[in-house]
């Protein structure tokens, strides 16, 4: 008990935290120290957001905050209250309703174990909003803040470029592409 810290004497104070996630308003009673990543996974049971390193390095927990990618492990839920959060579930929550990035990942084998995938999907979805027609170099740079221990990144970079193609063809009037997404192994 020699180096007792003032903080050691603290117990948690609970707050009613209300956050809009994928368009739905959720409230939970949580301590201020609840990370947004844990709020999503434990309190809201939205386990699509994965947690790897919990210090900002791996990118697995990346969600969109008002459309911009941010690390949910580097935000407290209480700070997310005035913002719209989008998780991977909000981008497409079943094989029939996948967004262009999710479809590109299944087509190009952009995942193996899938642990890192939600963070890539959110990051790339936001990136393609800003840069709909990236070069390969730009695609690589766009995913440089996300770690994948399986794929070696080649197919992830391919997926970024393919997702850009799919997004551009979606933007065109219907006719050409009727995305025949096969059953996916991503779930």
């Amino acid at each position: 008990m020699t180096d007792l810290n003032a903080a050691d004497l603290l117990t948690d104070e609970l707050h009613d935290v209300t956050v809009t996630v994928n368009g739905a308003v959720h409230t939970a009673r949580v301590p201020a120290r609840r990370l947004l990543s844990d709020f999503l996974r434990h309190d809201l049971r939205l386990t699509g957001t994965h947690v790897g390193c919990e210090h900002g390095v791996c990118g697995a927990c990346t969600v969109l905050v008002d459309g911009r990618p941010m690390r949910s492990c580097l935000m407290f839920a209480i700070q997310a209250q005035r913002h719209e959060i989008t998780t991977v579930e909000g981008l497409g929550d079943s094989p029939e309703r996948m967004n262009h990035v999710q479809r590109a990942f299944t087509e190009c084998h952009g995942l193996q174990c899938g642990f890192c995938t939600p963070g890539f999907i959110t990051t790339i979805t936001a990136f393609l909003e800003d840069n709909p027609d990236p070069t390969e170099g730009e695609a690589r740079e766009a995913v440089s803040g996300n770690l994948c221990r399986c794929t070696g990144y080649q197919n992830i970079v391919k997926s970024v470029l393919r997702a850009a193609e799919l997004k551009r063809s979606e933007a065109e009037p219907p006719a050409a592409e009727t995305a025949q997404s096969e059953e996916s192994e991503s779930r």
């Binding site: 903080a7 990370l35 900002g56 690390r71 935000m75 407290f76 700070q79």
Partner: peptide
């Protein structure tokens, strides 16, 4: 509060808190 800390973007502070390298009693956001 002598053990309070300022919280801005949290991109350096939250990792420090998670690793328990610092234990502030208060965060001033």
């Amino acid at each position: 509060h002598a053990d309070a800390k300022v919280l801005a973007g949290g991109q350096s502070l939250i990792p420090v808190l998670s690793m328990r390298l610092a234990r502030p009693t208060h965060l001033v956001d």
